[in-house]
Structures are given as structure tokens and as C-alpha cells.
Design a protein around this nucleic acid. Sequence first.
DNA 1: ATGAAAGCGCTAACAA
DNA 2: TTGTTAGCGCTTTCAT
Lengths: 333, 333
Amino acid sequence: MRTVAQRAGVSSATVSRVINGSPAVKEETAEHVRRILKELNFIPNPIATTLKYGRSNTYGLIIPDLANPFYPEFLLNFEEALVESDHELLLATTQSNEPKLVNSVRRMVMRRVDGVVVMASEYDTRAVEPLLDRQIPIVTIDRNRAQPGSGDVAIDFDEGYRQAVQHLKELGHKRIGFIGGNVGIHTSAVRLEAFRKGMVSAGLTFDERLIRSGDYRVSGGDAAMASILMEPRRPTAVVTANDLTAFGALRALHAHGIQVPSEMSVIGFDGIQMGDAVYPPLTSIAVSPRDLAQACLRALDHSKLHPSRRGLLLKVRCTLLVRSSTNRAPDRA
Amino acid sequence: MRTVAQRAGVSSATVSRVINGSPAVKEETAEHVRRILKELNFIPNPIATTLKYGRSNTYGLIIPDLANPFYPEFLLNFEEALVESDHELLLATTQSNEPKLVNSVRRMVMRRVDGVVVMASEYDTRAVEPLLDRQIPIVTIDRNRAQPGSGDVAIDFDEGYRQAVQHLKELGHKRIGFIGGNVGIHTSAVRLEAFRKGMVSAGLTFDERLIRSGDYRVSGGDAAMASILMEPRRPTAVVTANDLTAFGALRALHAHGIQVPSEMSVIGFDGIQMGDAVYPPLTSIAVSPRDLAQACLRALDHSKLHPSRRGLLLKVRCTLLVRSSTNRAPDRA
DNA sequence: ATGAAAGCGCTAACAA
DNA sequence: TTGTTAGCGCTTTCAT
């Protein structure tokens, strides 16, 4: 920058003003400086600014893992939104393990991020305290809790599962099973409860015997579906806690020679693109990763603007993405 | 840090020395300072160091998109390797679009990254010149070209496709089809050629009529397989340019009621975890994302150490991951 | 063994 | 309208 100033015969302050579009510069000088800037294809060093002001124009994202395609999809949208608003992304994965979470938080603090999206579903709140202490806004997902400096974006599971059950009901299904997430995890309970409410509000019987737990992964869905198939009175449709679980369920059904969707309908949750790659393409309750990313940013902005006010509690809607894994219930009612 | 120095009754220089484990500090003083450090749970500000030395301890990663699960898998491993060596990751996605690439490169320069992995397969070399100009090491993938400051990590397609063809031959397959990537892209030609060589070296006939192009995505694989099925003399096995293509092929086969693997074997490329989620689980030529990440780091390190020497040309091996989409060729020889 | 001080690049307050 | 200067936090000579 000094080089530019010298070449242009002005001070570095003037150069800075030109770069930041300060109006207090004679247009003539500004033009001249701009030419030199181009000439040397000067690229500013935002790190100096970060040092000066403690703001890095970077947002942190803490993610449990990337094996579930929903996370990359979210990541992509989040990154796009950030680039649009001239921010950077600092990514940390935790493998759902507490020490790595603590370390990730430390990295976020070190890099002076302006805010953090914490997607680790279960964790000790103490792990993120260093952020709150330093007034770094955070936003959590599906925790439904807010406090000063901390907002939350919740997915509207109720609405989502209600639509799924309604769709199945319209197709004539009455016996509907559910494969949930790991037991003991908050979001698993929330999803199951949303499914139950969906059944009740559709006037269908919620049958405990058709409920299984999975692990949000393919293997858990496979095992759970295999177990459901042992039931004397099988369901005609199964709804799952996420798409990977549904993939596992589909795999188990294939392995048992059961046709989807003619003999059994399956509905996943997340609406990942990969749902289109399996056979049959998976009907799923879709969460728009774009909406989610934008809600996170909104909550973060709010906390940055009003550090002392309670963080935002936002909700993201779901839409039923009907592909090909659902069809009329078989007649053997 | 000043606070720490005051509290400890020493100078900030001493604190710095303690933090960096300089031996030139009396153990007694060091111990004392360390206690204060803990007390105030001091977190250093690496940004100051970056400003001072122009090194950020950050590596950049430029990726075309995240829709192909191979990229997230690579990203995960790369991030892990970086965290282990106390580095950060700066991620940029380009959607295979040149202006975004240029912008990504600019971001990398601004953040003073210590090196960049460029995974955009096709691009104008001029786009990365700002990096080379500033002596920032880069490593490309599958370009097989190196120069000072720029290395390359190539996947050993020859070896991979050789194994795949060999495996099929042992299962009695003779007529083997291939679904490649987009035409006109360098890596597509390389993959096709590797497949051809594999066929020849196995003593099998490479038949142009069984070759199709895809687009590295599910839809392309689906369409290509549908086209292959129109051939009067169908192949008994199909090898693809990547796993997504194979997923599409599988989907088309399902839709046509053709059993895999009893009537047709399919082999993908990449070995993504998701290959286990489809039915039947996909046999694939696997590239270890971990090996790839480490090779990239190694090439980057080399260029950092020897800026004037030509960058490393590394090769990453493939291993055949046999799952369930391959079986003995049907008898209708 | 420790301290003082310079300097990395930038911007805002203040001066001219 | 433009220039001068201080200071963000750190490391590293150079002194002591």
C-alpha cells in the first residue's frame, strides 16, 4: 500500500480512503490512485484490519461430520451466502466428539470470527462458553433455546411430518412405521414426537410396535427396517428420521425382495439431492439448505446488532418432496 | 498479552518466549507465567503473527462443487490433516465457473494462505497466476504438470481400471461397457484411455459400441445406461467414470427390470461411502481421500521448502473395493 | 535471563 | 482535501 501511495504521490491515508470509497477525496486524485491500484494489481490485506478491529469478516461453522450429505449441501449454501456478503468461512468438524468441539471453539476464538453456527446436535453448553464470554454471537440448530448472544434455528418437524403422514393417508395408508434417530438424543425425541402428532392429527393410530430407533446412518436404517419386517402385521409405509436412514430402509427392503413403492412406501427426511440417485428415487420431507443458511445468518446478524438482547428463535419450514418411493397402499388391508 | 505480562510482572517478550517454549527462560519464571496464562485463559491472536510474517498457517482449497460426495470426503480428510498440523482451512467453491475461480484465488491471496489445492479440473491457467506470482505454492489434481511453485497429484487411473477389468474378467465377463465423463474434458479422456488399456492388457476386446459419455452425475449415468441397453448385443458389465455415474446406471437398470449383479455387473470409480447405501452396494475403484489429502499436503510442503524447484508430481493408488454389484457373467455368452 | 522497541498493513482521529 | 500518526498483538533483534 505504501508502494501505491508513493507511486501516486499521495499518502497511504488517501489510498485507504480511495479504496474504501470515502467521498472526501477529490475525484481527480481518486481516479489517479485507482489507476495505480490497477497497475500494480494491488490486493488489500484484510488481516491488518482484523488486527486493528478484532473483526475478521469470517464466520465459523462447526459441523459434526460430512458423511451425511445434508451437511455439505448446507455448507455449500452457507459459503455462497457468505461470499456474497464478502465474508469468509472457517470450517471445523467435530466427529461428534467433545474434545474436538472444544478445540474448534478455540480455533474460532483465535481467528476472531464474527459469529459461529454450531451444528453439533448434542454437546455440553460449557464448550461454547468461550464464544459467549467474548461476545461472539452463536446460533444453534434445533435446540429451541436462546439467550443474549445466542440464537437458534429450528426445523419445523411438526409441519414436515404432518405433511408426510397426510400424504400417506391420502394414498390409503393406515399402518405407518417410523425409524427414528439414536435414542437419548434430543432431536430424535423431537422427530418421533412430530411423527406421533402427525399420525394423531391425521386420525391414524400411532402404534408403538412399528417404531424403531436408528442412528441417522444407512446401517441403522437397514437394521431397523429388517426388524420392522419381522412384525406379524407389517406397516404399509415407513417414515424415517433422515434420508440416510431411509436409504438403509430401502436397502433392507430390496434385500428382502419387497417392492417399493408397490408393496411398501418410504419417506425420508432432509430432501438431500442424493435421494434422487437411489432406486426408487426417495420421497422426502425437504429442508431447504439455502433457507437454513440464510436463517442462520439472520440470527447471527441480529445478535451482532443487539448483543444484549436475547437471540432470535427462527423456524425453517419443510416441504414434502414427492419422488417415487411412495404409492397407494397395497390392498391387503 | 500485555495483561498477562503485567500480572506476571515480566515483559511481553518473556510471555511470548514462554508461549513458544523458548529455552532461554528461567524455568521458575516460565512456570509462573504459565500459571497466569491459565488463570486468564489466554488465547493467543495468530492474526498478529500473520500480519508480521505474511504467513497465515492457513491452506486454501478450491473445489468445483460439493454435490459429488467425493469432495466432502476429501474435504473432511484435508481438514483433519490440517488441524493436526495446526493449520486452518480456507474453502472456496467455484461451481465450475471461471469468474468464481478468479474471485476464489483473490480471496486466497488476501488471506495470505500458505498454499492452495486447486481441484477445479478444467480452467484457464491464468486464473491461478496471482498465486504463483506471490510465491504461494499450489497443487493441482490430475493435470500431470508441474513447475516451480506448482505440484500435481494424479490418481492412478491406469492401475485402477486395470484392476476393475481384471476383476470382471475373472468373473467371466467379456463384453464390458464404459460410461465416461463429459466429452472434451481432459480427465474424461484419461479415464477412458485407462479403461481401454485395461481391456487390452486383459486380452479383452475394446468395443466402441459399448462406450458412452456421461457427465459425472447421476442423470448422465442413467441416460447412458439406457442407451447402452438399446444395443443389440448388450454388455454383461459396465464400468463408469465415477460413482455418481454408476448410481445413475444402477437406477436405469432397476427401471428396466434388469437384476444387478446377476444379469449385469457395475463398477464405479471413487469408492465413496454412499456406494454402500444404494442397492446393490456398489463395487468401485476406490481412491483414498486420506491418501489424496496427504499427497496434496506433501506436494505443498515441498513447494514451500523449495520454491524454485519444480513442484512434485505425485501419484495416488487405487484399490478395488468389491461390494455387491459385481458377479459372474450370465451364461448367455 | 530478561526488557525495550521496531514493524507487519491498515484506518480513524486529528492537524494542516 | 490531504497528510501525519498512533495503535491493533505479536515476535525478534539488540541491549542490558
